Amino acid sequence: MLPKRSLLTALTAPAVAAVLISGAGTALAAPAEGTGTAEVAPLVSRFDNGSFESPFARTDSFTNFPAGQFIGPWQVSSGSVDLVDDGLWQAAEGDQSLDLNGSNTGAVAQTFTTTPGETYTVTYALAGNPAGGPALKTGRVLLDGQNIQDFSFDITGTSLTDMGYIKRQVTFVATGATTTLSFVSTTPGSAYGPVIDDVQVTSCCPCAC
């Protein structure tokens, strides 16, 4: 049988727009900045790579991506983030997840096509890096640079093998032909941030919703 990773193929990546928020924190005992692969911004299309499956993180470890680099269609818009393999800790879906605090407080953003006036729902799995404090990890969901949801996760009682993911949801009405969705850590002074995975964006007409 082929290894599970050999069954995955690279996703076609939509373009990504930068977010407004930046932060700083203490250094993490992690790979050096710039270990992620920089990419040219891809063309805008449908929302994709919500489980952060492409590119591959270091096996049984993680890869650090500083601001300006891309994780598939996601751009690291401030600070840095860690793309984490499930050999290091449990993913909510697939083989990888994203710590929003890499070597400092980070943020990621993805721009995708939308239909003005149509209602969209964003769902995602939320946890926190259990390897260090603070116990309460916090962050925000931004839509076109505007805060639409604050989130928090208490890592008390969780572990690398039982991350305790919870599902979060937020709904919005698109106002333009493209929309930028961002996840931003607000956990300062720490290299152990909120963890997100299994981000999904679905649409429905107002009558169906």
Score class of each variant (00 low, 15 high):
45 S>H: 10
151 F>L: 15
173 V>A: 03
77 S>V: 06
129 N>G: 01
121 T>K: 10
71 I>E: 08
209 C>L: 12
190 S>Q: 05
206 P>F: 03
52 F>T: 06
31 P>S: 12
114 T>D: 03
199 V>P: 00
178 T>N: 10
28 L>M: 13
184 V>Y: 10
39 E>S: 09
163 M>D: 01
107 A>H: 03
40 V>L: 13
46 R>Y: 13
208 A>R: 11
10 A>S: 15
138 T>A: 15
38 A>N: 10
79 G>S: 08
202 T>D: 05
197 D>H: 13
207 C>G: 06
204 C>K: 14
186 T>F: 02
24 A>T: 15
198 D>T: 14
13 A>G: 08
141 V>P: 03
90 Q>D: 05
38 A>V: 12
194 P>E: 01
152 S>H: 07
99 D>I: 15
200 Q>Y: 04
86 D>E: 15
5 R>S: 14
168 R>V: 00
111 T>C: 06
197 D>R: 08
2 L>R: 15
61 S>G: 15
133 G>R: 01
70 F>E: 03
48 D>P: 00
22 S>Q: 04
152 S>E: 07
139 G>M: 09
142 L>G: 02
43 L>R: 08
63 T>K: 03
147 N>A: 11
161 T>S: 15
183 F>G: 05
185 S>L: 07
104 N>M: 05
183 F>I: 04
91 A>W: 07
107 A>P: 00
100 L>V: 04
125 A>W: 01
122 V>L: 15
10 A>T: 14
132 G>F: 13
30 A>T: 11
80 S>L: 03
28 L>I: 00
89 W>E: 00
42 P>V: 13
22 S>W: 01
105 T>N: 04
29 A>R: 14
130 P>K: 07
52 F>Q: 10
112 F>P: 00
164 G>M: 09
8 L>I: 14
130 P>Q: 04
177 A>G: 14
99 D>G: 15
170 V>A: 09
91 A>I: 07
36 G>L: 02
117 G>D: 10
87 G>K: 03
196 I>G: 06
105 T>A: 11
113 T>C: 06
78 S>K: 00
31 P>V: 07
12 T>A: 08
189 G>R: 10
197 D>E: 05
24 A>Q: 12
174 A>C: 05
24 A>R: 11
49 N>W: 08
156 T>R: 14
209 C>G: 05
69 Q>E: 14
175 T>R: 12
121 T>G: 11
53 E>R: 08
182 S>M: 07
155 I>N: 02
186 T>A: 10
11 L>T: 10
38 A>E: 07
79 G>W: 05
148 I>S: 06
58 R>W: 00
195 V>N: 04
41 A>C: 10
95 D>M: 12
198 D>R: 11
77 S>K: 00
45 S>T: 08
146 Q>D: 14
192 Y>R: 02
83 L>A: 02
76 V>L: 09
1 M>D: 06
42 P>D: 09
203 S>I: 00
158 T>R: 15
60 D>P: 05
67 A>P: 02
196 I>C: 05
30 A>Q: 13
56 F>P: 01
63 T>Y: 05
29 A>I: 12
91 A>D: 08
159 S>A: 09
184 V>Q: 12
65 F>W: 13
27 A>E: 11
184 V>R: 00
172 F>D: 00
9 T>I: 09
154 D>L: 12
150 D>T: 12
12 T>G: 04
75 Q>E: 05
177 A>Y: 02
33 E>G: 09
73 P>S: 12
44 V>D: 03
182 S>W: 02
31 P>D: 11
81 V>P: 06
44 V>I: 13
53 E>G: 11
